[in-house]
Simulated scan of single mutants.
Amino acid sequence: MRSLWLLLCLGLLALSQVRADDTSDDIFGLEDIANFDEDDEEFLRLLEEKNQAKDVERENELISKLAEVAENQQNQLNNPVIEVDPCDRMHCGAGRVCQMADDKPECVCIPECPEESDVRRHVCTNKNETWPSDCAVYQQRCLCDTKAAGCRDPDNTHLHIDYYGTCHEARDCPEEDMKDFPRRMRDWLFNVMRDLAERDELTEHYMQMELEAETDNTRRWANAAVWKWCDLDGDTDRSVSRHELFPIRAPLVSLEHCIAPFLESCDANKDHRITLVEWGACLELKEEVLKERCDDVQNAVPHLLG
């Protein structure tokens, strides 16, 4: 009976040692077992305490690992790794899209424009040619600008939209009408500026320019001309491109048969850009009354007006 009890105790002790994977911290050894009787409650208590201690140790270790995993997950939620598409920071002009090339973003000509079946989406260009959409015009200009396949005419690098809709027959602008057009244009610019001021649709900077034009006749036409020139200069490069003239050309082309030749005449040196001096000369304003006052220019490096 005593030998059977000893074998049972040895088995339990061996099992506890295997589960702990470490015998260095045993509470008692084999020689201690011999000192206990089979009915010794102290022996059973110590054995149970040892097993409980090992169980608690394993539970604590498991809880610690679970807490570490939870902390890592929370850190990932609080500090997520956001992958930024380089193309999101790349601004491409009209007719161009961003694509990755050798892990670097670059602007390329838009590969395909959507088909437009609605004739109201057609556009008329400065060549008095009808194109299916504004996208098609911008795409063509890009292809010619980059000398890519698909360019129909090298001159299309300067292709721009005159107005939306199918081209209508161009009307001639008689010399007499052209002669009077700058005056009517000055008057129209001032009236538009005043109307926007009355509707509180001008920035504070331009509101001040409009008030000055209202109270000082010497600034009446000049301020209106400078305001519109600054307004048209979308890329703020201190010149207005043929493309940037679209907002002023498109709404007037059906009403003013002289608007197209008038704007063409403003580009005196034919570089497809209109400086403030060229704009003023076109409106028959003296250079000395022109003063660049675009509100986005602050402490800029001085540059020539012409």
Rank of each mutant, 00 (worst) to 15 (best):
M1K: 05
L4M: 10
L10P: 03
A14F: 15
A14E: 14
L15I: 07
L15C: 04
D21H: 09
I27C: 12
G29N: 04
E31K: 15
E31G: 06
I33N: 13
D37C: 03
D39E: 12
L44S: 10
K50C: 10
K50P: 00
N51D: 06
Q52N: 07
K54A: 14
R58V: 05
V69I: 10
V69Q: 10
V69M: 06
Q74S: 02
L77P: 00
V81P: 01
E83T: 02
V84G: 00
R89S: 09
C92N: 11
G93C: 05
V97Q: 14
A101G: 00
A101M: 09
D102S: 11
P114Y: 10
D118H: 05
V119W: 01
R120M: 05
N126P: 02
E129H: 12
A136S: 12
V137L: 02
V137N: 07
Y138L: 01
Q140P: 15
R141F: 01
R141E: 02
C142N: 11
K147D: 04
G150L: 06
D153N: 15
P154L: 12
D155L: 08
D155T: 03
N156T: 03
L159D: 09
C167I: 08
E169P: 12
A170F: 09
C173G: 14
E175H: 04
E176D: 07
D177G: 04
P182M: 03
R184C: 13
R186Q: 15
D187I: 01
N191G: 05
V192C: 08
M193E: 04
R194E: 15
R194L: 14
L196Q: 01
A197T: 05
A197G: 08
E198A: 11
E198T: 12
E198F: 10
R199S: 10
E201F: 10
L202S: 02
T203S: 00
H205R: 06
H205F: 13
Q208N: 11
Q208S: 07
Q208D: 04
E210R: 13
E214F: 02
N217T: 03
T218H: 04
R219E: 06
W221K: 11
A222T: 14
V226I: 05
K228Y: 12
K228V: 02
D231M: 13
G234K: 14
G234Q: 10
R242P: 01
L245Y: 09
I248K: 06
P251E: 06
L252P: 01
V253R: 11
S254V: 01
A260N: 09
S265M: 07
S265D: 13
C266L: 15
N269D: 15
D271I: 03
H272K: 13
I274R: 07
L276H: 10
W279V: 13
G280H: 08
G280F: 12
C282D: 11
E284T: 04
V289I: 14
R293L: 03
V301L: 07
